[in-house]
């Protein structure tokens, strides 16, 4: 399974990299979005996916054997990362809109000079 997931992540990365190399800023944003998803997956994978239990301590028990659950730490990290990447994506979206309004284009190459 890890092998397949790794290939999947690789594919997402390929898509993401291809998209961020486009000149159209809309595609660049989509690319950033794909890349952040793929990166979250890498972190998730790093925690180990063999143990497929939920990260909860059952009612009545005081502890749980860590071998039974997925590693909770990467989950916590990814959870905040997801929310932050949502915030950042919205920020870029706003930025893009402003950029389009000011320049009238969505071609990034037009942005190479800051003077005019």
């Amino acid at each position: 399974m890890e092998l397949v997931l790794a290939i999947f992540i690789g594919l997402l990365y390929a898509c993401g990299v291809y998209l961020v190399l486009r000149r159209s800023i809309i595609k660049v944003i989509l690319g950033v979005f794909v890349l952040s998803n793929a990166t979250n997956l890498i972190i998730f994978l790093a925690g180990g996916i063999r143990r497929s239990g939920k990260g909860f301590i059952p009612e009545g028990a005081e502890t749980i054997d860590p071998a039974l659950i997925s590693d909770p730490l990467p989950q916590a990290l990814i959870l905040t990362a997801v929310v932050i990447s949502l915030g950042i994506s919205a920020y870029i979206l706003a930025l893009k809109f402003r950029y389009f309004e000011v320049t009238g284009t969505h071609d990034l190459d037009q942005l190479s000079k800051t003077d005019d």
């Binding site: 290939i7 594919l11 990365y13 990299v17 291809y18 890498i42």
Partner: peptide, 16 residues
């Protein structure tokens, strides 16, 4: 760009 993207993907797979 396609070549760059594919090699980046392959690299990430290997690294992962």
């Amino acid at each position: 760009d396609g070549i760059i993207a594919l090699s980046a993907g392959a690299m990430v797979t290997l690294v992962v």
